[in-house]
Amino acid sequence: MTARQVPLVSLFLSLFLSLISGTYHVSATSTPPSKDLNIPTVVDLRIEGQNRTIFSGPIRTRGHNVTSASGVTLHCDGTNNHTNPTPGPTCTSALDDASKQAGFSWDGELFTEFDDFLITRIARSEQTATEFWGILVDFQFTPVGGCQQQVKHGDKVLFAFNAFNKTHFLSLAGPKAAAVNSSTTFAVTDGASGEKIANATVVTLRGGPVGITNADGEVSLEFGKTGIHVVKAFREDSIRSNHVKLVVT
């Protein structure tokens, strides 16, 4: 072995022994790869239009460029107006994905100073001089527009027509299963405050029992037919509730 080969062999041997003994470390100044926060995320999206529920259910979304019905394209990933440092899924990206999945359109006015849309129409529900679309996450109004507001897995995202003129945003709770011809109790509350809502009409969609909530926000319904039933709550001064689906056997 030559004199030149000796230090190389010593170096390789030293590295090998360090690795197997666990004493060799990567420099503390090494920068780990950045985590991509703009990953597909499932949120619970509900769109309550002027006269009907336009969409209700889980939607998989991530931040992406969106194009309004008027043909305006905008990045919609939460970095709008420098609101968030990294891109991610947003309220309006969820709306856009739902529109493609369910076959409805949406439109909005672009405010360049906020780098965001003001939603003006979803499906056939279009704003008026006094009735506007509002956006809520977990029953709280968002402090920024829908392309600025990022969302996370499981968030309850609500687009509500005439949201600013309503007293309550109804939340309906009830069982997932019931026995035929037995009393089944449902409860209606204000989603934001938890207040019990009296005088709300709880309706079985596509035919079935109907009832009015009492002072405790509760109503009992009796289902005379087996099968899957969908129940929803309404009150004139409120945004209609989520639906509860239950199996009657």
Rank of each mutant, 00 (worst) to 15 (best):
D237I: 15
C147F: 07
I197C: 07
T226L: 04
A192E: 14
P143G: 05
I197M: 06
D237P: 07
P175L: 02
T201Y: 00
E236M: 06
F169H: 08
T189W: 01
F234T: 10
S182K: 04
D138F: 00
F114W: 07
T189H: 04
G207E: 03
K176A: 12
A200W: 01
T226H: 07
A200N: 04
K176M: 02
P143L: 14
W133S: 05
T167W: 00
S171V: 00
V180C: 06
E126I: 10
V219Y: 09
K225T: 10
G217Q: 12
V210D: 15
T128Q: 08
F164S: 09
G208K: 10
Q148E: 12
G154Q: 12
F141K: 13
S193H: 02
G207L: 13
I119G: 03
K166C: 05
D116I: 04
V202K: 01
D116E: 08
D237T: 11
F234I: 14
K232Y: 03
N181H: 13
H168A: 04
A123R: 15
V219C: 06
F132P: 00
T120D: 02
D190H: 03
K176Y: 01
D190E: 13
A123V: 04
Q140S: 15
H153W: 06
S193V: 10
G194F: 01
D216T: 07
N181E: 12
E113H: 10
A179Y: 07
G227S: 15
N181C: 01
L205V: 14
R206T: 14
A179H: 06
W133M: 09
I212D: 03
G211I: 03
V188G: 04
F114R: 11
